[in-house]
């Protein structure tokens, strides 16, 4: 669990103001790859800042090509898990935003039942979580599920 204060985590709009349905609705109006990826890039740019001090091995997700970090904090009051993700690749950050829209600010039990694969499928981005893609996205999702298991 991260030492960063809860307020920093809770500033994230993903999973609260921006949920799966918001992303899907926005995506429906985009008709070519350029618009879709521009949207992903914008999502990536809108990810909340990740504390520099937390870019450490312990939070590192071993993907292949880009660097990815993930931290979490449990709010003992509402029993929800709060997540922050960082990457040096913008598209990976954009895809992380989709992951966060799904899992952030949810209880561990909710996380266990939530499915992000179906969303990526609908968005025609499923290839990004195929095991052959070395972008760490799959490991990112597995890490979130593991955190939910352990909390």
């Amino acid at each position: 669990m991260s030492e960063i204060d809860l307020a920093t985590f809770k500033a994230s709009p993903f999973g609260t103001e921006i949920c799966q349905t918001d992303i899907l609705e926005a995506f429906e109006f985009l008709d070519d790859w350029e618009e879709r990826y521009s949207y992903i890039i914008d999502l990536g740019k809108s990810l909340p800042a990740f504390p520099e001090s937390e870019k450490i091995e312990q939070n590192f997700i071993h993907g292949c090509q880009s660097q990815v970090w993930l931290i979490h904090k449990m709010d003992e009051a509402d029993k929800k898990l709060y997540l922050l993700i960082e990457s040096d690749a913008i598209i990976v950050k954009g895809l992380a935003a989709v992951v966060l829209a799904t899992f952030n600010a949810k209880t561990p039990d909710e996380i266990k039942t939530l499915d992000v694969e179906a969303l990526f499928e609908k968005m025609d981005l499923i290839r990004h979580i195929s095991p052959t893609r070395g972008n760490g996205l799959r490991s990112m999702i597995e890490r979130v599920k593991l955190i939910a298991q352990n909390n």
């Binding site: 790859w33 913008i90 598209i91 990976v92 972008n135």
Partner: peptide
């Protein structure tokens, strides 16, 4: 300003296969 994996992904969308990493 661009990560090589971003370049690779977006070239792939345009039918172009390069290697990154």
């Amino acid at each position: 300003g661009l990560h090589s994996s971003d370049i690779g992904t977006l070239l792939d969308q345009q039918g172009i296969g390069i290697r990154t990493g």
